[in-house]
């Protein structure tokens, strides 16, 4: 992890404000300690102290990009999982027998940024031939696999981004949500905030990690490793508007072909959640895929919670003041 962090920190970083003269000044002060071996504990300490306060110039905004994952064509080959691990140099999760179909990684984690889910929907009583989609019981009698390659949703108004107190989480120039590994201090606020259970704190180093939407590859004009490796084009990568257009056409096509359940999850903003830059074509309820049926952005409650919090404190102070004024000699 350490070498990867150094690589990441060597990249020019997009950053939150403030930036400007102070950053330039700090940068000059610290440069010798960043690029040469620090000469002794004091310069190293100084370097560590000043480094997080350096803010680079943000790159120019680019066309927003994202993923559209069509789960109906996923064959569960896990090529995306492997490609993600290889490109991002993520360690293996061991050979675990999860007892949950062909799933051996179980969840997204600090070391698994793509996770292929396997859902077996088989009725013991039903014949092996799928029932006609017209019949009422069609859903309960379907004998089918559902497979879905899951990853960070790159939410447009991302709770993890809103929560992060260090500014480690940024929305980069492609409007993807990216964790600056050299800034994160492992406070876990993003983990608590993510409604999809995506981010995890690593045991190695104690920092949080998740899908970067292959920021490094995108900067070099390459598509993300998972999309590149996917043999069925279940994972599409590209400009987000084009992906939405493409996905809507596919839903219409599926409806015409007798799959009326097909719909898009996360392509447009809902009442309680923003649109996502990684959205999915699903054919069953979101919860069947382990996704929240109605994701909720916790920040919608924040102002009200502050009001109640302040009111609780002010009421107590008022009581104290009244009693003091009434009883003081």
């Amino acid at each position: 992890m350490a070498s990867r962090e150094q690589e990441l920190s060597a990249l020019p970083q997009a950053s939150d404000p403030p930036r400007g003269r102070l950053s330039v000044l700090l940068g000059r002060l610290i440069r010798p300690y960043l690029h040469d071996e620090p000469h002794g504990p004091l310069p190293e300490l100084l370097g560590r102290l000043i480094y997080p306060f350096l803010h680079g110039e943000p790159p120019k905004p680019q066309q927003p990009t994202g993923f559209y994952t069509d789960t109906t064509v996923c064959i569960g080959c896990k090529a995306c999982e492997v490609a993600c691990k290889q490109w991002n140099q993520l360690p293996s999760d061991g050979f675990n027998w999860s007892g949950n179909s062909y799933d051996n990684t179980n969840e997204l984690s600090a070391t698994t940024w793509r996770h292929v889910k396997f859902i077996e929907q088989f009725s013991h009583e039903s014949p092996s031939v799928p029932a006609s989609p017209d019949t009422e019981e069609s859903e309960s009698l379907l004998n089918r696999w559902l497979m879905m390659s899951d990853n960070c949703k790159h939410c447009v108004a991302a709770p993890c981004h809103q929560a992060c107190p260090t500014g480690a989480i940024i929305q980069n120039e492609f409007q993807n949500i990216y964790i600056q590994a050299d800034i994160c201090n492992g406070c876990s606020c993003c983990i608590a905030a993510c409604p999809f259970g995506v981010i995890t704190r690593s045991e190695l180093g104690g920092h949080s990690h998740k899908c970067t939407l292959c920021y490094d590859r995108q900067r070099d004009g390459l598509e993300p490793a998972c999309a590149k490796a996917c043999p069925t084009q279940s994972i599409h990568f590209g400009p987000i508007d084009e992906l939405r257009e493409q996905a809507r056409k596919r839903v219409e096509q599926l409806h015409e072909r007798g799959v009326p359940q097909a719909y898009l999850y996360g392509d447009v903003p809902g009442e309680t959640y923003s649109e996502m830059h990684s959205f999915y074509l699903l054919v069953d309820r979101p919860s069947v895929y382990g996704l929240p049926d109605a994701p909720f952005n916790p920040w919608l409650h924040m102002m009200g919670d502050y009001v109640r919090s302040v009111a609780g404190g002010l009421a107590a102070i008022a009581v104290l003041l009244v009693v003091v004024f009434l009883l003081k000699p």
Partner: peptide, 15 residues
Amino acid sequence: HEVGYENGPVTKVPG
């Protein structure tokens, strides 16, 4: 680990 994903927790516990 439950079979399927429907009844499992979706969010992760902060450390």
